[in-house]
Amino acid sequence: MSSTDTTMQSIPRTGRLVPIVVFIVAIALIALTPFLGNYYIRVVNGLLIYILLGIGLNIVIGYAGLLDLGFVAFYAVGAYTYGLLASAQLGIHLPFLLIVLIAALLGMLVGILLGVPVLKLRGDYLAIVTLGFGEIIRILVNNVDWLTGGPKGIARLDKASIFGIEIARPVDFYWLLLVTVFIVATIVWRMEKSILGKAWAAIREDQDAARGIGINTTNAKLAAFATSATIGSIAGVIFAASQRFVSPESFSLQESVLIVLMIVIGGIGNILGIIAGAAILILLPEVLREFAEWRILFLGLLMIALIILRPAGIVPRSFGPERLIRGLFGK
């Protein structure tokens, strides 16, 4: 994998055009979306949730270089936390922000509980154990009928509200998601640049060497796993609140694979790449609706081709948020 571009050399003049264009297009799209019809806003909301999930999973796959195929389990933990704590199912009706907090802690706890036994093992097992864990969560959710409503799920969840402002229309969720994505992306990007992020990069590139220079690889991997689980769980809460319905169907293995695919196609280890990957994978099916299965075949082949021809994804690792910001302000 190419090394991360963190040198502070100045960007050549020609290198400023792309960041400025990207920035203007992004602002235009963000500003225009609220004026679209509800259907399109829902599509964009779906896109934003996947971006959130992608940013979360990318910590494990892109930064620490571990393959997690059960990420959707944490998404389910968050969604069902909202489903149980804000509906008639258990008769509990907690405020939205409190549930976000509970779900974040719960997601982190589940991530640590799963990570502690697994991350000490050989790294290859992580893929299969997380996959198995994802299936276990799905089977449990599907069968513990008295708690989760089984395959029927939980319907009529409470309307979300933040400090008395009701969040119910798609456009409300659009702003909520936009703010959440922005905050999470900023935090995760700062984490990548922190000493912990450098430890992750070291583990990804060469675990032996990382251990050799005194990095506690198990703890660093655990931190990656827990952070990723927390983000997945928060995404689940917002998803459940916007659907006002949760059922096991939303948390299949295919969802996990889709998020992995998104990261790979967009650009492993790069937040801007994940946004691009999510946009392709979520918007393309909307555009190519009449091609039905062909588009999935196309995505599979595209994934193979990209891994071989452009292993860093569509957006290279060097074109990260840092490059965007420096390009804009000309530092």
Partner: peptide, 9 residues
């Protein structure tokens, strides 16, 4: 990851 793509295809 490539094998995931092969599987999907």
């Amino acid at each position: 990851l490539s094998s995931l793509g092969v599987s999907l295809s």
